[in-house]
Design a protein around this nucleic acid. Structure first.
Lengths: 209, 209, 209, 209
DNA sequence: TATGAATGAGGTTTCATTCAT
DNA sequence: AATGAATGAAACCTCATTCAT
């Protein structure tokens, strides 16, 4: 049911066609999520803001919840692919981790709608962990796991803690640092937070010889 | 509207009588809040869990929201009065602040339902800041403000920052520290967190001579 | 169920005892009917205004509707007995009719709560015409019928119209004249209206020789 | 909110299509109003009589009350436009007033549901005087005011009473005359009532030279 | 792809009435 | 006679979702 978004618009018309309704709907939800939580947004509202018929939501998405997942998936795909890109050319697991942390915080800081969905809304949903969306999150987490494993192999990270645990620790810390800013609505000082997080982090996991 | 609970049960039966319905209802909401957010709890559910008739909710509380506020008010009254008690006999503003911080974290850590209501649910409600419940929160904040003012007078706290700002900083920090634990559902190491919070805090506000 | 009101209070205490609850309730309904229509008055409201327990209404009256009927019955009994009294000593059917008309208008004009119940509320009720209250109305109508019959026998009223029809005509005219004042809330000029009504009336029914 | 009814049905089927739901609902309310007052009619009943889903009421009208207003507005628009038409070609303010009175009584007499809403139900509603419906009533009243002003200018009506007051007097008289018939459910003799009303009326306001 | 119309299920709240004491 | 507590039924209304075209 969830049709994939075409990565690139059709080559003929670069930006002349009105955005197709699927995009309008997704965009409408994003707009609404800026001020309300998902449960109190109605499909009627979404369609009104999108300027399309309410029933159309169900042509593009299975569900109201499906729509949210799709929106989240868009964000996550975006995030993951730009993260992959950013990590290219960086040498050494430690540097990569630093980049990973910085970029994650950046992304959370940059788009609050994404952050709210990811950190607040989606967890409550039954079936989330079986969802397609969650698979993308696993990709994201997978990226980090690879880096850690690499670091352990390289001998620059502690081998006596399971890589998976290290990963959870890092991801938890990132979320932990970002969450209050998201809930209380203040801005994160990206560099400072990333630094302080890494400081604590590396203190525990980097091997010093 | 909110009828006072009788302080003591009838002398004959110390704890044989079934809890009066008001208590049952409040208790039911607390139970339900452990797993769902307030908006997705229905009055039907509350009454079912409480084992009472749905309409009875409206005999005891003005509203569904009124019920939440009443539950929160119970918690807060509890909290504030035990906090007042705990602060007795402590000498010096700095020590009092430390206690205040420790106790607040303790309370947030101890009862997650309370924490969720206080930190997540209640803020969204229109009219919250005019509510009776908010007055109790102000008492809580007032306690801290008094301590700070005392500290400034005693000369052990910086006088060049407004007491109110110091207070906001402290309260913000407490919430900031507790929130992730609440959302992600892990336990707070009360001593460690209180210490680290105070360390950062006192670094900025204590006068050293 | 509808207990009769004692005609006279107990001889011992002329007016020291608080009015018994039945009276309080009836009185409360009357007060409330001044500003609201019966359907939108709640039993809770009635009991609150009466200062008695809500359940007590059901000790004294079968129903909410039973209460209304009882209140109306009080009014009607009052009305009918004072009407009987007023008609005493008047000679001649025509004069009696004039008195009847004047007094009826007076009563409608005087107590708007009574008028509203009688002219507006009670008619809608299913079962009204079988009710005990309606029997009192029939007494009232019976009084008039007797006068008319008397007039016909005396030879001063037309005999070619059925007495019952004459009666309906008169009663209809009275209501007709009073109703707008009741609905639009203005005062009736009792003398003027009674005169003009009788004028029209007698023009049609009095025999002139 | 209130969507306009299509003026004409689709050309193909002149009167074969089932009436659209909006009409069905309005019609159902009208039917029910014949025997019950608005407050004791439930939305469930309306939808049952209309043969549509209850929720559909709220797609077509804002409210239960909105539905009533819409029904009334239909009537009033009808009334006002046919009144405008009827007044065309009549010469002289006095004749126009006579027509206005006659037509108003006719309309009240003709459709008792309309009359009940207009004279009994709608006045009680909070916000009526701010409603769109009330604007139509003002048009109706405006028509009369224009005629009166015209009459004063022409010199055939008294200039020493404010036109507005004359208007209120006339409108009040019309209602006064129609109300009992509406409540007691008898038929008005249109000609006779209009004549007698005008007689009284003109006696007071027409200038005789 | 798009839509206007329709709907079932359920939400909160109100209210007349009854129960137990 | 009186009451506090309780309740079933129903009121109005909302909303995600489906139908027919």
């Amino acid at each position: 049911m969830e049709k994939k978004l075409p990565i690139a618009p059709s080559s003929k018309s670069v930006r002349l066609t009105a955005p197709p309704s699927r995009v309008k709907i997704a965009r409408a939800l994003k707009v609404l999520l800026q001020n309300k939580d998902f449960n109190s947004i109605t499909t009627a509202e979404i369609s009104r803001v999108a300027g399309v018929n309410e029933a159309l939501i169900y042509r593009h998405f299975t569900d109201k919840r499906g729509l949210l997942h799709a929106v989240l998936a868009d964000y996550l795909n975006d995030f993951v692919s730009s993260l992959k890109f950013d990590l290219k050319g960086i040498k050494g697991a430690v540097n990569k981790i630093r980049k990973f942390v910085w970029a994650s915080i950046h992304y959370y800081n940059d788009d609050r709608v994404f952050s709210k969905i990811q950190l607040l809304e989606v967890r409550n949903f039954p079936g989330y962990f079986e969802s397609e969306t969650y698979q993308i999150v696993r990709q994201y987490a997978g990226l980090l796991l690879d880096i850690i494993s690499e670091g352990i192999e390289e001998g620059c990270l502690r081998a006596d803690i399971e890589a998976v645990n290290i990963r959870q620790f890092i991801l938890g810390a990132i979320e932990h640092y970002c969450l209050p800013a998201i809930i209380f609505g203040y801005d994160i000082d990206n560099d400072r937070v990333a630094d302080s997080l890494c400081e604590v982090l590396f203190d525990g996991i980097i091997l010093k010889n």
